[in-house]
Amino acid sequence: MSDAPVSTLPGIGPVTRGRLEEAGIRTVSDLRAIGSVAAYRRLKFMLPRQVSLNALYGLEAALRGYHWLDLPQDVKTALQREARLVEKGLPKRPASRCTIA
């Protein structure tokens, strides 16, 4: 395990680093301990509209040490299934306007 900042992983830029830190994931060890799907779940809960499937690809690829475009298709397919499960578990947002007459 590594106490290196999560930003030392490939593909983790300043925006993702900031979001991960806000989610309590500060080091490579933190991210490895919870894994890409749990980290994605935290980020998606915090910022549902800003965090996309590409974030999950990026987190998984960073843990593997390469660019998300290089993830094998079977890994992407598995991550897509996980992302759908995360989406189902997110709280439903209230209507943007009051519906009481």
Rank of each mutant, 00 (worst) to 15 (best):
L53A: 03
L59Q: 03
R19I: 01
E21R: 02
L85Y: 06
A33W: 00
V37N: 02
F45A: 14
R26S: 04
D30C: 00
A78E: 15
E87N: 11
R42P: 04
V6K: 05
L85S: 13
I34A: 07
P91Y: 07
I34K: 04
A83W: 01
G11E: 09
R81Y: 14
A4R: 12
T8D: 15
R32E: 12
G58R: 03
R49N: 08
T16R: 09
V15Y: 04
E60I: 07
R97I: 03
A61E: 09
A95V: 02
F45G: 10
R32I: 00
A83T: 04
A39R: 02
W68K: 12
S96D: 04
S36Y: 00
S36I: 03
P48A: 05
R42W: 04
A61Q: 07
A83M: 03
L59K: 02
S36N: 05
S7C: 11
A4M: 09
P10D: 15
M46F: 00
E21A: 04
F45D: 11
G18L: 01
P10Y: 13
Y57R: 05
W68D: 09
Y57E: 06
A23R: 00
N54R: 13
R17K: 08
L9I: 13
A55E: 11
A33N: 10
G11D: 09
T27I: 03
P48N: 06
V51K: 03
D3I: 05
A4I: 02
H67Y: 04
Q50G: 09
T8L: 12
T16E: 06
S36M: 01
R97N: 00
T8H: 14
K76A: 15
R64K: 11
R93S: 12
L59I: 07
R93D: 10
P48M: 02
D30Q: 01
G35M: 09
V6I: 11
L59P: 02
L43F: 06
A4F: 02
E82D: 15
T99H: 06
